[in-house]
Write a protein that binds this DNA or RNA. Structure first.
Length: 337
DNA sequence: CCATTTTTTCCTGATT
DNA sequence: GAATCAGGAAAAAATG
């Protein structure tokens, strides 16, 4: 897929095999993809608020350095992404409308390879990473979602030393649906007994459904304007809540953090650096370390959220002020069967 | 904008 | 020596 950057409109264009053109445009908090044909736009295909917007700063445009901006160059990069709008994938005209964001509406496990790449493209846009970089790592992540989701943080870092950690975190956010505009409630219709999808939709559909439909709406032709009605931001997790939620998430417990003694609310960091790094990723702070993370942990002693455990490295215990710890399956031993 | 709380950064020193 | 733990101090960020 070749992308051209138009300095004037700050948009990216890509020619499709059927002669039409797709436009990727980030404008304020809107990430839009438009579909043109012979320079006449034929349909706005999708207008979605970036699902991660509320997790931090607004979307940035691609990270073009000042020099190339000054020269007003048109950038052409050959990106090994297959045409996501290949006709053969759609059965009717209606379905032929391009949908770059189909991955947003599915659990990761159900992404095909194209959707993985769409996600990768979106993530790079979100992180403001130069597209040249995408060229070098796209192949590394060329796999369907069920494979992608099995990659560890280390696997991500191995595939992309600079951004693997953040990509991993973005993927976890999608999995967790924390900042996601859509609900997976209806997905997949034919696999409603799937444990993952059921769990996800049960946990998040209620709070998410209140805001979900506003972001699927089509918009007027032309460059998107800034939305006037801003969604109220999602309240950030406190650090101790983040720790607690990891313990309640089978993706991270007991792999990254585990209960030592659930009755005493005592737990241990297994991969302390990973936990800290992911926290930093959440806060868009790549400099976070376990050293600093643990300092923040220690500030909670005074408030009774945590109590110190003497002589045990990486072991902490929740105090009387900590809430929401209830689970009937600590360390998810039962659910392994 | 202000006050307060939470988190980050840095540091010295102790312990494992 | 490397990691970790304890907190003080100060600043930054977030929240109300």
């Amino acid at each position: 897929m070749k992308l051209e950057h138009d300095m004037e409109s700050d948009s990216f264009y890509t020619d499709q095999t059927n002669g039409s053109v797709l436009r990727f445009c980030n404008y304020d908090d809107v990430c839009s993809i438009d579909h043109f044909h012979s320079n006449n736009k034929i349909s706005p295909v999708d207008c979605s608020r970036d699902p991660y917007y509320d997790s931090g700063k607004p979307l940035q445009l691609l990270n073009l350095d000042a020099q190339s901006k000054a020269k007003s160059e048109i950038h052409n990069w050959n990106i090994e992404i297959e045409d996501p709008y290949n006709k053969s994938r759609y059965s009717s005209d209606e379905d032929m409308k391009p949908d770059c964001n189909s991955w947003m509406r599915k659990p990761i496990e159900y992404w095909d390879t194209l959707e993985t790449k769409s996600w990768l493209l979106s993530s790079f846009m979100k992180l403001g990473i130069h597209y040249e970089k995408l060229c070098t790592v796209a192949e590394e992540f060329s796999m369907p979602g069920n494979k992608l989701v099995q990659l560890s943080l280390q696997d991500f870092v191995n595939r992309d030393h600079d951004n693997g950690g953040r990509l991993y975190e973005i993927l976890q956010e999608h999995r967790d649906m924390k900042y996601h505009s859509y609900s997976f409630a209806k997905f997949p219709p034919e696999c409603s007994d799937d444990e993952t999808s059921v769990t996800i939709s049960q946990n998040y559909s209620d709070e998410e459904s209140v805001i979900s439909t506003d972001y699927i709406k089509k918009r007027q032709p032309g460059r998107p304007r800034s939305l006037s009605t801003k969604q109220k931001p999602v309240k950030n997790e406190r650090l101790w809540e983040y720790v607690r939620n990891l313990l309640l998430n089978p993706k991270f417990c007991p792999q990254w953090i585990c209960w030592e003694d659930y009755e005493k609310k005592r737990f241990r960091f297994v991969k302390s650096d990973c936990v800290a790094k992911m926290w930093g990723s959440r806060k868009h702070n790549p400099d976070m370390t376990y050293e600093k993370f643990s300092r923040a942990m220690r500030y909670y002693y005074k408030k009774g959220i945590f109590v110190a455990v003497q002589g045990r490295r990486l072991v902490y215990q929740f105090g009387p002020a900590a809430t929401g710890l209830e689970t009937d399956d600590p360390n998810f031993r039962k659910s392994q069967f």
